[in-house]
Design a protein around this nucleic acid. Structure first.
Length: 202
DNA sequence: GATATGATCACCT
DNA sequence: GGTGATCATATCG
């Protein structure tokens, strides 16, 4: 399948496409070692209408540029002074949006993931967005890469969730918007829910 | 140029 | 359950 055909399933509102990521494989060959994760938790951002919690809410900037670009690319950003988070770009033609990769189960390269996250229990290796990027060796160097490029160090392999698996929905973690744009499987690698920090003078 | 804050985690109690 | 770590980005002056 050509790259153009391979990425086509990512065209659509992030709200609709994000849950399709559940069960898919994210395969990393960063630093010449392979770690593969089966995605168990994602969140949609920049979906239909206004999403105040999306990095794109205030328009195009150098940082969020990738989210406006071609679907199937990786948007990587740095936060809290020490963490990297990764998103898969997905949106309607001419639109903007992405899905934050929040958690996964390491299904290949467990030894490598353990080295990258010493002390973690196996279920915690990619449990949380920053842990996931660390387990896979993802950092700012990989911002904007094409997950369907012929020589891409990171690939997204489409795979349906197991038959009979339940998709859990709920509010996104750490934001004020109550809309249920978080999607997860019923699996121990899913990160715990944490409400947004209350705002001053509500 | 200065400042506030964040799509978090690890470690403590 | 609470807190410290630590810095890019956006926004304001």
């Amino acid at each position: 399948m050509s790259p153009a055909a391979s990425r086509r399933w990512l065209i659509g509102d992030s709200l609709d496409v994000a849950p399709l990521l559940l069960g898919c494989l994210l395969q990393s060959d960063v630093d010449d070692v392979r770690v593969t994760v089966r995605l168990t938790e994602v969140e949609a951002y920049g979906g239909p209408g206004l999403d105040p919690d999306s990095h794109t809410f205030r328009g195009k900037t150098p940082r969020n540029l990738v989210m406006f670009g071609e679907v199937g690319h990786l948007y990587v950003y740095f936060t809290y002074g020490m963490h990297w988070c990764a998103n898969v770009v997905m949106h309607d033609d001419g639109g903007v949006g992405a899905a934050l990769l929040r958690a996964g189960e390491v299904v290949d390269g467990v030894e490598i993931a353990r080295q990258r996250r010493p002390g973690s229990r196996d279920r915690d290796l990619a449990r949380g967005p920053a842990r996931l990027t660390r387990a896979l060796g993802i950092d700012g160097r990989l911002n904007g890469i094409d997950l369907y490029g012929p020589a891409s160090p990171i690939r997204l392999i489409r795979r349906p969730a197991e038959a009979g698996s339940v998709v859990v929905t709920g509010p996104r973690v750490g934001v004020h918007d109550p809309r249920p744009w978080r999607f997860s499987l019923d699996h121990p690698t899913v990160s715990p829910y944490r409400p947004a920090k209350p705002r001053r003078q509500g």
